[in-house]
Design a protein around this nucleic acid. Structure first.
Length: 869
RNA sequence: GGGCGCGUAGCUCAGCGGUAGAGCGCUGCCCUUACAAGGCAGAUGUCGGCGGUUCGAAACCGUCCGCGCCCACCA
């Protein structure tokens, strides 16, 4: 136990987070507080980090997410759970490759200049730097992760997991290879999945083109005129009488000299446009299906860069260049019968580089999603996995129940290479992690890598050693909760659900999915580098402390709702931390202690009983909010309890007690110590640093990180709470009077206090202290009288009263009270109300009425006591 | 085209059947011996519009207006 007096003296009057925070964190790590022991007998609590991409550094969104996870895990650790917060990072295939390619471009090189191996080596170098930066940020933020378990989606273990599940899925025929239309990014030169495509409204031109001539002509419309070079049919609806005579015939495709058939297909909407559709099976997913149904040729006219490969005048032109050239050529031939420009329509863009996506026919690897998605949907339907907030469930189902097969191959270099070997005669062998790949002439490994979400989908168990049956896996799987943003519900969460259930014999990866919103700026605008409102969390942490950033983020965290944050608010949180700091300083200077048991209730003043009653109520409240992931609510509850109740009232009231000394003061010292001890522990998960330095000083304990989480003792004292509420009312009323009178806050005024039958007599000294009222003394002359809640405070202001101001104020208050009375009476006079309203409501109105009556009487008395103007 | 959500104090948001709340901002007085990163006191809203249900609606229902997000193969 440290000596409180000297500890307090050592605390400066201002909290300086920058000096305090970093050393504390390193001490926690050194002492191994965050290590999770898979052999422990304690109940497990597991959260895996949503692995940040190694593409750069953490932004406020990460800081937000980490704050929530850190708070959850710190509380559980304090509650005695064997707690694992699993750290790690994601290789982020396409994103990282793009970043490194940009770096290379600055040197005037492309990845092809380096070659595959050297390029990958280069990415690893980059990962080392970037990864170091990220873990530095996590330390600064205070993330209580088990660093010994840090994983990377490309490390050996995770790679083995990838290979294992690939092989298993392949053997179960849930992975297959097929030529289909995929979304192709002509800049990244890879296939991308449906959800990596961002649609946005673009200006385009819708041209209607006449194919064929005379009676045998037909008009089709398109926004991608260049694809006509690859048309292999025109389709109409089978029941469309306008074109019935043409079905089965051929028509001339302009500019090419080719003749293409007219086919009938249900897919065509006869109401739309001309009711005829050009069919380009190699460049449009719908057309591909039509082509399949009618055995049409898939004529590829664009290469991987989006350049025309069809022979003719357009050969070698970029797709957009060719588009206008072809329209011009058609116009010259008089085949453009209508043009709509601008024609706003939805166009897909690569989510990584914003290039317009090109649907492209190509051979890719696919996961057959049906059975996996069924299981993933059922797990939520059955209630084995809960989605929080519940409103997000419908989004989840909407997606998982309508899922197309997942294209998992990417034509990239950075990622898990597909564990398939192709033989000289077209043989295909899928190789497991402990198997030798086939060797010999002509055998080569598939050049594609896997979608980055393939490995992150394994994260809840690959990080724990799967496919080995490790102790960690047995202990920490399923994860307790997954905390992540709603934006990656589909990208990541759905994949983890599918893979987790599949790989772990139907065991769901986590019990709860807790979705949070996106961090926005203080005006609710999305944060982005291009908009210039993005903030580096380190800046604010250096300026105001990690605690301040964390507290601000937690206070904004309403489930599933976006979180605005502004620098002013962080400042406010810093002020709060400083306030806690100073209140604890005060307590230490006055000998607050945690030594020994709390004095028996009979020996406690009503003030002490009141604050203990409130303290326990807050413990219960905070617990309930934690269980419901209501971070904003629990932070707010703590903020107000600490500041409004403990600091502004309890501490102020206790000053008098301490000044008077005696057994009452000793009891209060113990109670104050208790209140701060519990409060600091309650605050710790959200603001770990300031609470650590204060709690250890206050209690002499080793660390609040490993302290017990407070429990509600069940102690409540309604009478004490009512008594203090009344006292607060009296004091506020007199303060208001003083303020209205223009009395300076520090100015001492002689007063007589008559508490009547309020039962507040014990608070006479405290009231005088808070109100700066002197004993009445000799020659006391009452010039103002304030009846409040049955008490009467008489002041001797020696003619200094501003009666006009007071009369004005009282008149206003009187009108308000009378209005209240009238309304309450009206309600109580309403028979329908009396008949139907519940008793407690009626009772409430009655109370309101009697309060109004009392107020009216009080104000009237005050008015009467004022001298006539 | 479907689905979800939102419009409450100057700003950002809680409240979701019993007569309006928070943070920040704002006004006034004060360096009252823990804290001026503070204290005390105070002002501020026809709870998007219109109908309906109800004894009672910011809250429930309908509708309209404005905004956002997600999904979808609109030639």
């Amino acid at each position: 136990m440290t000596n409180p007096q000297s500890s307090a003296a050592e605390l400066p009057t201002q909290y300086t987070p920058a000096e305090v925070e970093a050393p504390l964190y390193e001490r926690w790590v050194e002492r191994g507080y965050f290590k999770a022991d898979e052999k422990s007998g304690k109940e497990p609590y597991t959260v895996v980090i949503p692995p940040p991409n190694v593409t750069g550094s953490l932004h406020l969104g990460h800081a937000f997410e980490h704050t929530l996870i850190d708070a959850l895990t710190r509380r559980k650790r304090m509650q005695g759970y064997e707690t694992l917060w699993q750290p790690g990072m994601d290789h982020a295939g396409i994103a990282t490759q793009n970043v490194v390619e940009r770096e290379l471009a600055k040197e005037g090189k492309s990845r092809h200049d380096l070659g595959r191996e050297a390029f990958i080596e280069r990415v690893w170098q980059w990962k080392a730097e970037s990864g170091g930066k990220i873990s530095g940020q996590m330390r600064r933020l205070g993330d209580g992760v088990d660093w010994d378990r840090e994983r990377f989606t490309m490390d050996q273990g995770c790679s083995d997991a990838v290979q294992t599940i690939f092989k298993r899925l392949y053997d179960d025929e849930l992975i297959y290879r097929a030529e289909r239309i995929i979304n192709w990014c002509p800049r990244c030169l890879t296939a991308i999945s449906d959800i990596e495509v961002e649609y946005q409204e673009d200006d385009g031109e819708l041209v209607s083109i006449r194919y064929g001539d005379g009676d045998a002509s037909i008009v089709v419309a398109t926004t991608r005129a260049e694809t006509m070079l690859g048309d292999t049919a025109v389709a109409v609806h089978p029941d469309d009488e306008r074109y019935a005579h043409l079905v089965g015939t051929e028509i001339e495709l302009p500019l090419t000299g080719r003749r293409i058939p007219i086919v009938a297909d249900e897919h065509v909407d006869p109401e739309f446009g001309s009711g005829a559709v050009k069919v380009t099976p190699a460049h449009d997913p719908n057309d591909f299906e039509i082509g399949r149904r009618h055995n049409l040729e898939n004529l590829n006219v664009l290469d991987e860069h989006g350049v025309i490969t069809a022979h003719g005048p357009f050969l070698g032109q970029d797709r957009f260049e060719a588009r206008s050239a072809i329209v011009a050529a058609l116009r010259a031939e008089g085949r453009i019968v209508a043009e709509k420009r601008p024609y706003v329509h939805s166009v897909g863009h690569c989510s990584r580089c914003k290039t317009t996506v090109e649907p492209r026919l190509s051979m890719q690897w696919w996961v057959k999603v049906g059975p996996l998605a069924k299981a993933a949907g059922d797990a939520v339907r059955d209630g084995r996995v809960k989605v929080h907030p519940k409103e997000m469930e419908s989004r989840y189902f909407g997606w998982i129940d309508n899922l197309n097969d997942w294209c998992i191959s990417r034509q990239l270099w950075w990622g898990h290479r597909i564990p398939v070997w192709h033989g000289p005669n077209g043989e295909i062998v899928c190789v497991g992690p402990d198997e030798e790949p086939p060797s010999g002439d002509g055998w080569t490994q598939d050049t594609d890598v896997l979608d980055t979400w393939f490995s992150s989908g394994l994260w809840p168990f690959s990080t724990m050693g799967w496919p080995e049956e490790t102790d960690s896996l047995a202990k920490f799987y399923p994860n307790s909760v997954l905390v992540t943003g709603y934006d990656i519900l589909f990208f990541w969460v759905a994949r983890m659900m599918m893979f987790g259930l599949y790989a772990m014999d139907g065991q769901e990866p986590f019990h709860t999915i807790a979705l949070h919103g996106m961090v926005r700026d203080q005006f609710g605008k999305k944060m982005s580098k291009s908009f210039g409102n993005a903030v580096d969390p380190l800046d604010w942490m250096d300026k105001y402390g990690s605690d301040a950033v964390r507290f601000t983020l937690a206070r904004g965290a309403n489930p599933g709702v976006d979180v605005p944050i502004g620098e002013d608010w962080v400042q406010g949180s810093r002020n709060f931390a400083n306030k806690v700091w100073n209140a604890t300083r005060f307590a230490l200077m006055n000998g607050a202690t945690v030594e020994g048991p709390l004095p028996p209730v009979e020996q406690l003043s009503s003030t002490d009983r009141w604050i203990l009653s409130r303290l326990n109520a807050v413990v219960a409240e905070v617990d309930a909010y934690y269980e419901d992931y209501q971070f904003a609510k629990l932070s707010d509850a703590l903020f107000h309890f600490a500041w409004d109740e403990v600091f502004d009232w309890y501490v102020e009231l206790s000053k008098t007690t301490f000044a008077e000394g005696g057994p009452a003061a000793d009891a209060s010292r113990r109670v104050l110590g208790e209140v701060l001890d519990v409060m600091l522990r309650l605050l710790h998960p959200v603001v770990p640093f300031v609470t650590e330095s204060l709690w250890t000083t206050l209690t002499g304990g080793e660390s609040v990180v490993i302290a017990d989480w407070p429990t509600d003792s069940g102690f409540r004292d309604a009478a004490a709470e009512a008594e203090i509420a009344k006292l607060q009312q009296v004091i506020t009323e007199v303060r208001r009077f003083r303020s209205d009178q223009g009395l300076q806050p520090g100015q001492r005024v002689p007063a007589r206090i008559d508490f009547g039958d309020t039962g507040l007599d014990a608070h006479d000294a405290a009231a005088r202290q808070l109100l700066r009222l002197q004993p009445e003394g000799a020659g006391f002359s009452e010039t103002a009288s304030l009846p409040v809640s049955g008490a009467k405070i008489s002041l001797d202001l020696s003619g200094a009263i501003d009666f006009a101001a007071e009369r004005k104020r009282l008149t206003k208050d009187l009108a308000a009270a009378e209005k209240e009375k009238k309304q309450s009476e009206a309600k109580l006079g309403n028979e329908a109300f009396l008949a139907k309203a519940p008793d407690n409501v009626v009772e409430k109105i009655r109370t309101r009425l009697s309060t109004a009556d009392a107020d009216i009487a009080r104000i009237q008395t005050q008015l009467d006591s004022l001298p006539k103007a």
